[in-house]
């Protein structure tokens, strides 16, 4: 399995191929949402929501053999694409790896510029929530 750093490098080079064109970049992000695993409808409840201003994200996680597996969904396609990138980088790793992960691909892509400030705040909230899950599982595994 590739390291967090290797996957981030991959993502950065994929975005580099797209070049400067904003429209095709956003289309690409929207398409990435299609990679998300199916999200169980019954988990679309209030307690699993990460609230952004205009979009909703549902995020759940479970743990198998010391690795965390995330599932997520959103009511907007662009947000789905964004969370699919985070999941691609962080899924099925140990809590320690996730907690320590520096997600530099976001800045390297210049994502803030592409998606604007509202969605950037949302993206930061998603990362925070993923790390919170990791922290909770770490505590659980160590006790």
């Amino acid at each position: 399995m590739s390291t967090i750093r290797e996957i981030q490098d991959e993502i950065v080079s994929e975005f580099e191929i797209l070049g400067e064109d904003r429209e095709s970049t956003i289309f690409y992000i929207m398409e990435l949402g299609g990679n998300l695993e199916e999200f169980p409808e019954e988990e679309k409840k209030e307690e699993n929501i990460i609230k952004g201003c205009q979009s909703k994200v549902w995020l759940i996680a479970d743990e198998h053999d010391g690795k965390i597996h995330y599932k997520a969904d959103s009511n907007t396609d662009i947000t789905k694409g964004l969370i699919s990138l985070l999941i691609r980088v962080l899924n099925d790793r140990s809590p320690e790896e996730i907690i320590q992960a520096e997600l530099n691909f976001i800045n390297r892509i210049g994502m803030g510029n592409i998606i604007g400030s509202q969605r950037s705040n949302g993206l930061a909230a998603m990362i925070q929530q993923m790390k919170r899950y990791a922290l909770a599982f770490q505590t659980k595994l160590n006790t």
């Binding site: 904003r22 429209e23 956003i26 289309f27 929207m30 201003c53 205009q54 979009s55 009511n75 907007t76 396609d77 662009i78 998606i115 604007g116 969605r119």
Partner: peptide, 21 residues
């Protein structure tokens, strides 16, 4: 089939300023 926020962001990429929400 599309969220208004996504539509707004796509139109913005085309230089068109609208409001969503």
């Amino acid at each position: 089939g599309m969220h208004p926020f996504d539509v707004g962001q796509m139109l913005d990429a085309k230089g068109i300023a609208v409001r969503t929400g």
